[in-house]
Design a protein around this nucleic acid. Structure first.
Lengths: 226, 226
DNA sequence: CGAATAGTGTCTATTAGACATTATTTT
DNA sequence: AAAATAATGTCTAATAGACACTATTCG
């Protein structure tokens, strides 16, 4: 029987937000080796005694100032190829975070710089480690979960209008949706949206305001084009 | 800035199979501390230089004799609570494995005994570590993925009949499905099932044989009852 | 009033679910 | 022939998608 090998454990975050009518991801420019000056997903080492959700929430707070109550964070997947980090055996538990209306990011401890980048501009940049793959997995998870979950609300401030929610779907999926059918769909599923009774007027008829309902799931789902 | 903390990394496996008209999970009785003599999910330490999929495949082969080509294995989730293992910081990357028609299990290196157990009998047993939670997550993943993926075929030998596939769905979901509607559904989605042209006769009219098709996904999905 | 946006209604094609019927084998 | 299982067909209710229409605001 072989001996167990100790590894270093990190959490990395795919932090997505809808900003400037675009799906954007939070990237940091690394301040230290390896991959110094390269763009990377925010993240860092799991600390002594710290659970994985705690580590993810802490890193998110350091990079964005968001506290976990206002953000949706879920575990994405774990990446552990022996050669993924030149420092040695470093395994990362990637998380997906969806935030609403973030201000400008602030640089964290080992991040010289942080920036929101439209996801379709990322393929041009070389990300550190296997972060390009992790980002792709995170985006696909977000797209897939919009179909059957109330995840879209996590990308919006609360309360929100049906039109704002629809815009989130359109931006994340990159396809346009019929406003009338979308409205009928999301308001028709019991418990998915909670009407606040309030309205907000921008231009035209005032829009009813909603918060995410208790259902959490959208059944039957909204389907994207295949 | 705090120091990274080294952890030991394991892979654990939720190995599911349909045996004796029942959804069963492979459990091992632990031969060593901690939790000696307790039932647990099969698994073990990730070895030096070993990637996560390799470690999962190796552990699976040790416990069942299955090589990875014949089995569906996918990463499930990672569990890293600081107190989950009394030995210290041990983080496990759980995997879901679906196998067809396994023979009797053989005990592995640190497993004194191995057994297939119907999943509905598991709540009676006390599983080691947080394995009860991991098992629950694995079962739910399998149930959910049957809806939209060709995962059911992984629980069957190849080729198989539509009736055999339907039985898998019924057993995993614990609900009965209309044979005629199920047949129409799975044979109607292009690329989901590949007819072999062969038939197999048990009792009654010979059944056409199929293999899993190239599509991999079932769109639109089959939905379970909610 | 006209423009703009929100929200409802209506029609049609597709799909799901219930269930009848036909087809092909074994005994 | 009878029993058993496979496979197809038919009907109906529900849903998705296209699109007309009404509602409520601002300028």
């Amino acid at each position: 029987m072989s001996e167990p090998v100790p590894v270093l454990l990190t959490v990395d975050l795919v932090v997505l937000s809808v900003r400037a009518d675009d799906l954007q991801v939070l990237l940091v420019r690394r301040g230290i080796e390896p991959y110094a000056d390269a763009w990377a997903l925010p993240g860092g080492f799991v600390l002594d005694g710290e659970d994985l959700p705690d580590a993810a929430a802490r890193e998110l707070a350091e990079e964005t100032g968001f506290d976990r109550a206002r953000v949706h964070v879920e575990q994405l997947a774990t990446y552990g190829a022996a050669t993924r980090d030149p420092r040695g055996r470093v395994v990362t538990v990637a998380h997906l975070a969806l935030v609403s209306d973030p201000g400008e990011p602030r640089g964290g401890s080992d991040a010289a710089e942080a920036a929101w980048v439209p996801v379709r501009e990322v393929p041009g940049r070389e990300l550190a480690f296997d972060h390009e793959r992790i980002l792709a997995d995170g985006i696909e998870r977000a797209r897939a979960k919009l179909e059957y979950s109330a995840l879209g609300a996590a990308l919006l401030g609360s309360p929100f209008t049906v039109a704002e929610l629809r815009r989130v779907y359109e931006i994340v999926w990159g396809e346009s949706l019929d406003p009338r059918n979308f409205h009928r769909k999301v308001t028709g599923v019991a418990g998915f949206l909670e009407p606040t009774g309030e309205t907000r007027t921008e231009r035209g008829r005032p829009a009813a305001l909603f918060t995410a309902g208790p259902a959490g799931v959208l059944h039957p789902p909204i389907t994207r084009q295949r």
